[in-house]
Design a protein around this nucleic acid. Sequence first.
DNA 1: GCCAACGTTGGC
DNA 2: GCCAACGTTGGC
Length: 149
Amino acid sequence: MKSEPDVFSIEDLRDRPNQTEPWDGVRNYQARNFMRDEMKIGDQILFYHSNTTPPGIAGIAEVASEPYPDPTAFDKKSKYHDPKSDPEKPRWILVEVKFKSILPNYVSLDEMKEMPELQEMRVLQRGNRLSITPVSAKEFKAILKAGGA
DNA sequence: GCCAACGTTGGC
DNA sequence: GCCAACGTTGGC
C-alpha cells in the first residue's frame, strides 16, 4: 500500500492510537476491489512511501478490519467527499491497517529494481499508479530480507 | 517543477 | 460506444 509520507507515513501509523488507521480516501476501483475482495484480517502489508526521496518500502503493517464503507465519501467537509457515493449503496470501501514494524533498512525503489525476486512486482512495472497492489509471498520475503527484518 | 502514464468524464 | 479533454499520480 502506497502513501505519501508527507501526508501519512509509517511513523504516523506507529503513533496512532491502537497503531491502527482506516485506509480512507482510495478513489480507484481496482484499489478498492483489492481491499473489498482480496484482503483478509491478518494479511501482511508492505508500506510504501511514494512521492518522496527516495521512494521505497518503509515498514510492515497488517489488515486489521473487515472491509466497510469509507466514511469520508459521505463527509461534505472531507477532501475525499464523493457526492455519488450513496450511504445506502456505498461506492468506496476501506479496511483498517495496523502498524507492525519499521524496517531496520529502508528498501528503496532503486534497490528493489535490482532484486531478481521482484522483477514481476506490480509497483515496479512502468506507469503503474495503483496505490494498492497484490504482493506474492516470494516478493514479501525478499523485501523482509533486504529490509533486515 | 516537469511530464509520461493513466483513469475518468462527458459530448456526440 | 468512442474519444478528446482533463485531472491525478508519482518518478525523476
